[in-house]
């Protein structure tokens, strides 16, 4: 059973739960970090009627879920959440506190870190505990993803980071798992200054890149919208989805909802076939969660070949029609 002090804390971000698996991904990673530190994993969960999420978090590996249930916590609200969680941090002294780099995570965590006078790194693509110093090494992209920076918070606590969704893999649901769900006292909250008066839920498109098991990703190397559209045929044959790099979307070849990468979606597909993409980290962040990556690019020095399992040096325009024809014949 975990102790309360020095735990690895995870912010329980449950809005749009079925799309947003970030908290489960962070629990899985949090357990690795906690093991290195010989401590436990605690999810902090704020809201109204959120018990079902607490049960989910335990089933996905949390040792402890600390819950604040209150009608005034129903909406995600930066100042209320900051006040409550800064009090909890001061009482329970977590060693590490991580949140998903969702819109809310990126708005709320900076304010919380500032109130706690501690460090924060943004949109991390990896987290490890350094075995010597036991510091949390927070790997975060810099300069548009051209470089990775390893950031540490040497003296202040907790060590805080937001994490790019999709870079860690959640643990399977285990209904036998045992964990504590505790309800610490919560103070009365002042009226929030910022009020969400309407919140229109996302209009769900058909595209679900995050859940696709095969993703065909296209970039500028396809040279035209007509070439890009061949990817849909390929995706249909392989029962996959089509994703795109930022430049391809800026060229109007695909809609924003197909954007892969740091400012777009991250996949956890079994296979990504990346066609005509050069491989800027901005983009590859989105596909590094795939089990297997195959790339087709005519430039043998394209950076994308550094991250692939199979690299095919060829002009996509020459390969795509043959590939589609071959698959048609076979399927």
């Amino acid at each position: 059973m975990s102790k309360s002090f020095g735990d690895v804390w995870i912010f329980g971000d449950y809005r749009d739960y079925f799309q947003n698996r970030i908290t489960l991904q962070l629990i899985a990673k949090g357990k690795d970090l906690a093991e290195m530190l010989n401590t436990g994993t605690t999810v902090v969960l704020l809201g109204e009627q959120v018990h079902q999420y607490a049960m989910e978090y335990v089933a996905h590996g949390a040792n402890t879920v600390m819950v604040a249930e209150h009608p005034k916590l129903k909406e995600y609200e930066v100042e209320t959440y900051t006040t409550l969680l800064s009090q909890w941090v001061k009482s329970y002294r977590p060693e590490i506190f991580i949140a998903g780099a969702t819109s809310f995570g990126r708005e709320f965590f900076p304010r919380l870190a500032k109130r706690l006078r501690t460090g924060l790194s943004a949109d991390c693509v990896d987290l490890e505990v350094d075995p010597k110093s036991l510091l949390l090494v927070q790997t975060t992209p810099a300069f548009g993803g051209e470089l990775l920076a390893e950031v540490v918070t040497p003296d202040r606590r907790p060590q805080m980071a937001t994490v790019h969704p999709g870079v860690f893999r959640e643990l399977p649901h285990n209904s036998e798992a045992v964990g504590r769900i505790i309800y610490p006292d919560v103070d009365v909250f002042p009226e929030p200054r910022v009020k969400v008066i309407r919140s229109r839920p996302p209009i769900k498109g058909k595209v679900s890149l995050e859940d696709a098991s095969v993703v065909i990703a296209g970039g500028m190397g396809l040279r035209s919208k007509e070439q890009f559209e061949l990817l849909y045929e390929l995706a249909e044959l392989l029962e996959g989805e089509v994703g795109a790099t930022r430049p391809a979307i800026l060229s109007g070849w695909a809609d924003e909802e197909r954007l892969l990468g740091q400012t777009g979606k991250s996949v956890k597909a079994k296979l990504v076939i990346s066609i005509g993409t050069s491989g800027a980290l901005q983009f590859t962040t989105g596909i590094q969660g795939a089990e297997t990556v195959i790339a087709i690019n005519r430039d043998p020095d394209a950076p994308v070949f550094r991250i692939v399992d199979l690299g095919l040096v060829a002009d996509a325009a020459a390969v795509l029609p043959i590939l589609i024809e071959t698959l048609r014949r076979r399927l």
């Binding site: 969702t102 809310f104 200054r193 009020k195 969400v196 309407r198 919140s199 229109r200 839920p201 996302p202």
Partner: peptide, 11 residues
């Protein structure tokens, strides 16, 4: 826009 939700906010 916050995670696809279109929020109208008063501050």
């Amino acid at each position: 826009l916050s995670e696809g939700f279109l929020d109208t906010i008063r501050a």
